[in-house]
Design a protein around this nucleic acid. Structure first.
Length: 671
RNA sequence: GGGAGCGUAGCUCAGUUGGAUAGAGCAUCUGCCUUCUAAGCAGAGGGUCGCGUGUUCGAGUCACGCCGCUCCUACCA
C-alpha cells in the first residue's frame, strides 16, 4: 500500500515541478517519513534542494508549491513544515481500505505494484556450498539462512528463482577426509558403510578431518598422501575416487537434512567432478583466449602461465592511443601482479574452473550438465544433481542460462569473485557482468568466552580479542545441528511449563518452530558486513529483539480471533470506522507500518540486505504488542470500535505472517 | 606496499540515496498478571557517533588527512 502511494506521489510531484520550473534540472525526488505521524505520512525535502537553483528561500518555495500543486488521488492535504518540508497527508479511510484489501479490485491491494509472477525474469541463487567433508557449522548456517532468505525475498517479489548448492567433491577438503579414512585411520570400506548408516556421519568426519590436519603437521611427508589422493579425485575412475564420492554424497545428504530442519531447500546440485569430466574448463579456456582475456606470460615470475589482469588494475583504455599504451606497458615489463589462471605446468586453478561454471550459469559456455534426481522433498519436488549427459534422466529439467545470478559467498572470497566477474565482462558480456551479484557477508566467529565454555584452549592474546575465527580444519566451532538441538531443548522446557495440557509431539513441534524462528532471526538481524561474535547466551535468548518475540505477537493476534470465534479474513472484510482512524494516531500508525511490508521487501532486494525485514517485523510486532496492551478488544462495547480493533489486529497479523514467511520463521499455533 | 571493510550507550547492534529532538535489544534500576497468554507492557539512568579539517542552509551519513582493528593480496582449494 505504502509503496504504491509513495510512487504515485513521486510521479505526481515530478510532473508538477517539471511544469512549474522548466528552467532548472530537477533534483531526484526524495520521499521520507516525517518524525511524527501528526505531521503526515510523507515528507518531501524538495524545496530545500531547489533553494539554491532558484535563489529563493526554501520556505517560500515550499509555500508556492503547496499553494499551486493539486492533490493526487488518495491524498488529503499538503502543508509546509519545519525549515521547508512539504508534508503530505493521506486520506486515511481510503488508505486503510487499500491495506485491508476491501476496496474493490485486486489492483487496489498491495501487490498491484508487482509484475505478474515470473515476469521479472529468472534468477539463480547459489548458497550453502559447503565442502562435503564435515558437519555444517554456524558459519555455514549464516550462509544458508541468508541465501534462503534472499530466495524467499525474490520469490515474494515474483522472480522465478533456481536455488543451487555447489558441491566441491574433488577438492582438498574431501581429499583430506579420504586420506583420513584410507591412510591415517585405515578404516575398511565395510566399516565406512556402517559409519555412513549412523545418524550423524558428518560428525565423525568433523573429528576425522581435524585429526588428519594434526597428522599432516606431525609428519610433513604425510602431505604426499594428500597430493596423490587429490590427483586421484580429479582424474576419477579409480577406487579412491569412488570411495571419495561415496563419502561426500553421504555428507551431502547430512547437509541437506540439517538445512531441511530450517526449511531450506534446493533445486540443483552441480558437482565439481562433472565440471572437470565434461571439460567445461577446456571450452572456457578457448573462449577466454579467443577474447584476449587471458594472455601467455613470457617473462617474470609468472613465466609460462596464462594470466589475467587483476580486477581493479585494468588500465583506463586510452582511446585511440593503443599503440603508445602497449609500448609503455612493454617498457614497464611483465605485470607481476597479474592473476595466474593456468599454471606453468598446464593445470588450471580453481578460479579458472569458476569462470567456466559462471559462463554456464549465464548460458554463455555452450556446454551443459546432465541431470538426475538426487532426493525428494515432502511435497514431491526433487533436488537434481549434475551427471554426465549420457546418464541423464529423461524429462529432467534444465538449469542455468539465467538472467541474473546471486552468489552467497563470504567476504573473504570477494577477490576471486571479482576476477570471475571481470573475466565475464572482458569477454564482452557487459549485461551478464552487471547482473552478477556477489552477495558478500562476514563470518560468524566465537566470543572468547563462548570458546572457553566449549572447552577449547584460548590463548591470553585471544582472550583479549572480541572474537575468534572458527576453523573446520582445527575442529574449532559450533556444529549447526548441535546449536539447533540446544535451541529446541531450551524452547521445549518453556513450552512444557506453559502448555502441560498439550500432547508430547505437539509440544515438540512447537519447540522446534520456536527454535527455528530464534535461529533464523538471530542470523538475519545483523547486517551482512557485520562479523557475528557468536555467544550462546544471546543466540538462546527468546526475549527482546528475537524471532520468538515476533512469533508471540502473531500467536496473540490469532488467540483473539480464536476466542472470538471469528476468521481474521472476516474481520478484514468488515466495515471499519473511518472517523476513529482519523482521530487515533496510534492506531493509524499501526496500519501504516503494516502497509509498508511490500516496500521493505523491495528495499531488501535492492540493497541485498535481508536485515531490513527483520527490523520491520520486530517493529511491527512491537507496535502490535503495544496496541494489544492498550486495547481490550473482545470486551470493547462500542461495536464500531470493536470492528476497527479487530480489523487492525487482522491486518497486522496478516502482514507479520507475510514477513515471517519471507524470513522463513514458522508461525506456531500456540506459545 | 596495494585493495576492501569496520570504529555509534556498559555489552551486542540499527541508522534508508545528507534532513526535523541520534534509535533498538541486552544488562542495571522502578512499576504492572482476577483481563484477548507477563516469551509481554510502561518508565528511569546511560552518547565528544574513533580524532581533525573541509564541502553547505544542514554531516553519524559526503571529501581529505590521521589513529585503531579485521580480512584479502600463493603457479593452495
Amino acid at each position: 500500500m505504502y509503496l504504491q502511494l509513495q510512487n504515485r506521489l513521486m510521479t505526481h510531484v515530478r510532473e508538477f515541478l517539471t511544469r512549474k520550473y522548466p528552467e532548472i534540472t530537477l533534483p531526484e525526488i526524495v520521499i521520507e517519513q516525517p518524525p511524527k505521524i501528526e505531521l503526515g505520512e510523507f515528507a518531501l525535502p524538495v524545496a530545500l534542494k531547489l533553494a539554491r537553483g532558484l535563489r529563493k528561500a526554501p520556505l517560500k518555495i515550499a509555500q508556492e508549491i503547496v499553494d499551486e500543486m493539486p492533490l493526487p488521488e488518495g491524498f488529503a492535504s499538503f502543508e509546509v513544515a519545519g525549515a521547508g518540508y512539504i508534508n503530505a497527508r493521506l486520506d486515511r479511510t481510503a488508505a486503510a481500505g487499500v491495506v485491508a484489501g476491501t476496496l474493490g479490485n485486486a489492483a487496489a491491494t498491495g501487490n498491484a505494484v508487482l509484475p505478474a509472477a515470473g515476469a521479472r525474469g529468472k534468477v539463480l541463487v547459489e548458497h550453502t556450498s559447503i565442502n562435503p567433508n564435515k558437519a555444517a557449522h554456524i558459519g555455514h548456517l549464516r550462509n544458508s539462512i541468508l541465501g534462503d532468505t534472499l530466495v524467499r525475498l525474490l520469490r515474494a517479489a515474483n522472480f522465478k528463482v533456481d536455488v543451487q548448492n555447489y558441491i566441491d567433491n574433488t577438492g582438498v577438503q574431501v581429499a583430506d577426509v579420504v586420506v583420513g579414512f584410507e591412510q591415517m585411520a585405515k578404516v575398511s570400506e565395510q566399516e565406512i558403510d556402517a559409519l555412513i548408516a549412523e545418524p550423524r556421519f558428518d560428525y565423525y568426519c568433523w573429528d576425522l578431518y581435524a585429526r588428519v590436519s594434526q597428522w599432516y603437521e606431525a609428519d610433513k611427508t604425510h602431505l604426499e598422501a594428500r597430493r596423490a589422493t587429490l590427483h586421484a579425485l580429479e582424474t576419477g575412475g579409480n577406487q579412491t575416487a569412488t570411495l571419495a564420492q561415496k563419502i561426500s554424497m553421504a555428507v551431502l545428504h547430512r547437509h541437506l537434512e540439517t538445512m531441511q530442519r530450517l526449511g531450506i531447500e534446493y533445486d540443483f546440485l552441480p558437482q565439481e567432478s562433472d565440471i572437470l569430466h565434461l571439460h567445461f574448463w577446456a571450452k572456457a579456456f578457448e573462449l577466454l583466449k579467443a577474447a584476449g582475456v587471458l594472455y601467455y606470460e613470457e617473462n617474470g615470475k609468472n613465466k609460462g602461465c596464462w594470466v589475467m589482469t587483476r580486477p581493479g588494475k585494468v588500465k583506463d583504455a586510452p582511446v585511440g592511443a593503443d599503440g603508445a599504451a602497449s609500448e609503455a606497458d612493454e617498457a614497464a615489463g611483465p605485470d607481476e601482479d597479474a592473476k595466474v589462471i593456468v599454471r606453468s605446468n598446464g593445470t588450471v586453478g580453481y578460479v579458472g574452473k569458476d569462470i567456466a561454471y559462471h559462463l554456464w550459469k549465464f548460458g554463455l559456455l555452450g556446454l551443459d550438465f546432465g541431470y538426475r534426481k538426487f532426493s525428494e522433498y515432502a511435497d514431491g519436488r526433487h533436488v537434481w544433481i549434475s551427471c554426465d549427459p549420457k546418464d541423464a534422466e529423461p524429462g529432467a529439467p534444465h538449469f542455468g542460462g539465467v538472467d541474473a545470478i546471486y552468489n552467497v559467498i563470504d567476504a573473504r572470497q570477494s577477490e576471486p569473485q571479482e576476477t570471475v566477474k571481470q573475466a565475464i565482462l572482458l569477454m564482452g558480456n557487459a549485461d551478464a557482468a552487471a547482473r552478477y551479484t556477489h552477495f558478500s557477508y562476514e563470518m560468524v566467529a566465537l566470543t572468547p568466552r563462548c570458546a572457553m565454555e566449549l572447552g577449547y584452549a584460548v590463548s591470553e592474546e585471544d582472550q583479549k580479542r572480541s572474537y575468534i575465527e572458527v576453523s573446520g580444519r582445527k575442529g574449532f566451532g559450533v556444529k549447526a545441528d548441535d546449536l539447533l538441538d540446544k535451541l529446541i531443548d531450551a524452547a521445549q522446557s518453556e513450552v512444557d511449563t506453559r502448555h502441560p495440557e498439550l500432547e508430547v509431539e505437539d509440544r515438540r513441534e512447537i519447540a522446534t518452530q520456536i527454535a527455528v524462528g530464534a535461529l533464523r532471526y538471530f542470523m538475519l538481524k545483523f547486517t551482512k558486513q557485520s562479523v557475528i561474535a557468536f555467544d550462546f547466551r544471546e543466540a538462546l535468548s527468546f526475549e527482546g529483539e528475537t524471532g520468538p518475540y515476533v512469533q508471540y505477537a502473531v500467536v496473540r493476534a490469532s488467540n483473539i480471533f480464536r476466542k472470538a470465534g471469528l476468521e481474521p479474513e472476516a474481520a478484514l472484510a468488515a466495515t471499519i470506522a473511518p472517523a476513529a482512524l482519523d482521530n487515533d494516531n496510534d492506531l493509524w500508525e499501526l496500519w501504516l507500518a503494516a502497509g509498508q511490508t511490500s516496500k521493505v521487501i523491495e528495499q531488501c532486494i535492492a540493497s541485498t540486505e535481508p536485515a531490513g525485514l527483520t527490523k520491520h517485523a520486530f517493529q511491527l510486532a512491537q507496535q502490535f504488542n503495544n496496541f494489544y496492551h492498550h486495547h481490550h478488544i473482545l470486551t470493547e462495547e462500542d461495536a464500531a470500535k470493536k470492528a476497527l480493533l479487530l480489523s487492525t489486529a487482522a491486518v497486522v497479523r496478516r502482514e507479520l505472517m507475510k514477513a515471517m514467511d519471507v524470513l522463513g520463521i514458522p508461525v506456531p499455533r500456540v506459545m
